[in-house]
Amino acid sequence: MSIQHFRVALIPFFAAFCLPVFAHPETLVKVKDAEDQLGARVGYIELDLNSGKILESFRPEERFPMMSTFKVLLCGAVLSRVDAGQEQLGRRIHYSQNDLVEYSPVTEKHLTDGMTVRELCSAAITMSDNTAANLLLTTIGGPKELTAFLHNMGDHVTRLDRWEPELNEAIPNDERDTTMPAAMATTLRKLLTGELLTLASRQQLIDWMEADKVAGPLLRSALPAGWFIADKSGAGERGSRGIIAALGPDGKPSRIVVIYTTGSQATMDERNRQIAEIGASLIKHW
């Protein structure tokens, strides 16, 4: 067993022997301040990774656009098919120029040779490549099948209805392509620590998230040296922004954090800054 596999296998073990965790309302004060600064709703939840206990939450059962955070769930569904012998990570998928959609920095470079399922998941999570996500959605049967996968996990809230990039439209009061912070946090925890996926697939999923290259201005910008984070960000229309993450000190994750916002007129930089400040408060009061 590799060191990384050992780390993920012992996530519940280490967490069980940690000192009790206590909620700190100071972080919620910052979440509410972010709402004021952005002029928009902000949803927040913080779960203990081992027990699933909610440590703090704000608007945990209000719907927010998922945006690209759905790509972690998508690759979880792909990995479940791999575990069941219905898919192979090494299978190569070929596609054409007509398949390319807006923001496809990886797939646009491989029109000639195609990409493997493993490479597509890596591109979808680490670079948020939209064509990679659409190609992977095709392998599982489309958005409705991802929703069905989530329902089978016990998540009857999260739903995907459309493809990239239309799913980022974020129309107010439109339930399409949305989740709730509580539902997303619980589902992410199941994917990373539950028995739904094999140990190898859980490790692969967290490795992809740990290698995320496009979430630097968010929670990662607030992390002290030595902290662990595996995350996936999302951005959408109407001032929408979000991030889902597993993080913790001492090089291992111990909490799940989900943050979503929508309806702001603020710039992307300002949305990023507010999420980073929430992260800084979380870490300060850990």
Rank of each mutant, 00 (worst) to 15 (best):
L10P: 08
T139G: 12
P65D: 01
P253H: 10
E108Q: 11
S122W: 11
A276H: 14
G154D: 09
P12Y: 13
L136A: 06
Y44L: 11
T138F: 10
N168W: 03
I244D: 00
A183D: 07
L205R: 00
G251Q: 13
D250N: 15
I125D: 00
D161R: 02
E145K: 13
R162H: 10
R255N: 02
A245Q: 01
L197T: 05
I256A: 05
G154M: 06
D250A: 14
P165W: 05
D155E: 05
C18G: 10
S96G: 13
T116Y: 05
T178S: 12
S80P: 01
T112Y: 15
T147N: 11
K190N: 14
D161L: 03
G142C: 04
A182Q: 13
I171D: 13
L120A: 06
I243G: 01
R162P: 01
A280F: 10
H94I: 15
E46W: 04
I171S: 14
I171V: 15
A246S: 09
K109P: 07
V42D: 00
N168L: 05
L135S: 04
D155L: 01
V78W: 03
L100G: 03
Y95P: 04
E62T: 12
R189C: 12
I256C: 06
P105S: 05
Q4T: 10
R81A: 10
A266K: 13
P65A: 06
I140W: 03
L10G: 08
M184F: 09
V117I: 10
P105I: 07
I256K: 00
W208V: 02
I171E: 15
L247T: 06
E102A: 13
P105T: 06
L282F: 08
R63Y: 07
L188E: 01
G194C: 11
I283V: 12
S96T: 12
F149T: 08
K109S: 14
T116V: 06
E169I: 10
T158C: 03
N272P: 01
R202M: 06
S68Q: 00
Q274R: 11
G263Q: 06
A124L: 03
E108F: 08
G239S: 04
A84V: 12
M180K: 14
T158Y: 01
M180L: 09
K190I: 08
T139H: 10
A266E: 12
M184V: 09
E166R: 11
I93E: 05
K213I: 11
F228I: 08
N168Y: 03
N168V: 06
L218I: 05
H94L: 13
K109G: 14
D161E: 08
Q265N: 10
N130P: 00
G242S: 07
M115R: 05
T27G: 04
G251M: 10
T186K: 13
T139L: 15
Q265R: 13
R176G: 06
V82C: 11
Y103V: 05
R7Q: 14
T267W: 05
A34Q: 09
E62C: 07
S254T: 14
P181W: 00
P20T: 06
A40K: 03
G142I: 01
L19C: 15
T69F: 01
A266R: 13
R41W: 07
F70Q: 05
Y44A: 02
A211E: 14
E210Q: 13
I11L: 08
L247F: 05
L199R: 10
A230C: 14
A9K: 12
Q97H: 14
T116W: 02
T193D: 09
A280R: 14
Q97I: 14
G236R: 01
E56A: 11
R7P: 10
E87K: 02
C121V: 03
H285I: 04
S128Q: 00
K71R: 01
C75L: 05
G239C: 03
A9H: 12
G141L: 04
R273T: 12
C18V: 07
K109D: 10
F17N: 08
N134Q: 05
A34H: 03
E175H: 14
E210K: 11
P217S: 10
R92F: 10
Q265K: 15
L135F: 06
I259Y: 04
I125V: 11
P105V: 07
Y44P: 00
A124E: 01
E145H: 09
E169N: 12
V78D: 01
D250Y: 12
D177H: 01
D113T: 14
G142M: 02
R202C: 06
S51V: 06
D231V: 04
I278L: 08
L38F: 08
M66V: 13
P172I: 12
G39I: 09
C18S: 11
F14L: 09
W286T: 01
R118E: 15
F228T: 07
A280C: 12
D231T: 04
H110A: 09
V101L: 08
G52C: 04
P172K: 10
G234N: 01
A183F: 08
E175M: 14
L10T: 13
G279R: 01
E145W: 09
K53E: 12
T261I: 12
F22M: 10
T198N: 12
A84S: 12
S51R: 07
I54T: 11
A235D: 02
A222R: 15
I278C: 04
D174T: 05
L160K: 02
P253W: 07
T139V: 15
D33I: 14
S96F: 12
A15Q: 08
L146R: 00
R238M: 14
V257F: 04
F58E: 05
A200W: 07
K190C: 10
G226F: 06
I256W: 01
S96R: 12
G248M: 01
G43C: 03
A9P: 15
P25F: 08
G114Y: 05
L192R: 01
C18T: 12
R241H: 04
I243D: 02
T187P: 00
M209G: 03
S240M: 03
F17A: 10
A124V: 08
E61K: 13
L167K: 02
I275Q: 01
E270R: 11
N134E: 02
I93W: 03
I54E: 11
V31M: 08
D83G: 05
S122F: 15
D113C: 09
T198F: 07
S128A: 00
L218C: 05
L73Q: 05
G52D: 08
E61M: 14
S68W: 00
C121T: 04
F58R: 09
L74S: 03
I259T: 03
S281N: 12
R255F: 02
G142N: 07
T147R: 11
D161S: 07
G43F: 00
L146P: 00
K32V: 11
K32T: 09
A225Q: 15
K53H: 13
E237R: 13
P165G: 06
T262P: 01
D99V: 09
M268Y: 09
D36T: 15
G251R: 11
E46I: 07
G43D: 00
E237C: 12
S68H: 00
T178F: 02
S104P: 02
G52W: 05
P249C: 07
T69A: 03
Y95G: 03
E175C: 12
S2A: 09
E26Q: 10
P249R: 09
L219H: 03
L10M: 12
A230D: 00
Q4C: 10
C121I: 05
G236K: 01
T261R: 03
Q37V: 15
R41K: 15
P143Q: 06
I171G: 12
M268T: 08
G43V: 00
T262I: 09
I283A: 08
A9C: 12
N134K: 04
F14V: 11
R63T: 09
G142H: 04
D207R: 10
Q203R: 14
L49K: 04
E175P: 14
D129Q: 00
Q204E: 14
G234W: 00
I259W: 03
E46Q: 10
V8L: 14
N272Y: 02
V72Q: 02
I11M: 11
K232P: 00
P25G: 08
H285E: 10
L219V: 10
D174F: 03
N173C: 13
L167A: 08
R189I: 07
I244Y: 02
V72F: 03
P249A: 08
V31F: 03
L191H: 04
D174C: 06
P253Y: 10
P249K: 15
D269A: 14
G239V: 01
D129P: 00
G226A: 09
A235G: 11
A182N: 09
I243L: 10
G226I: 03
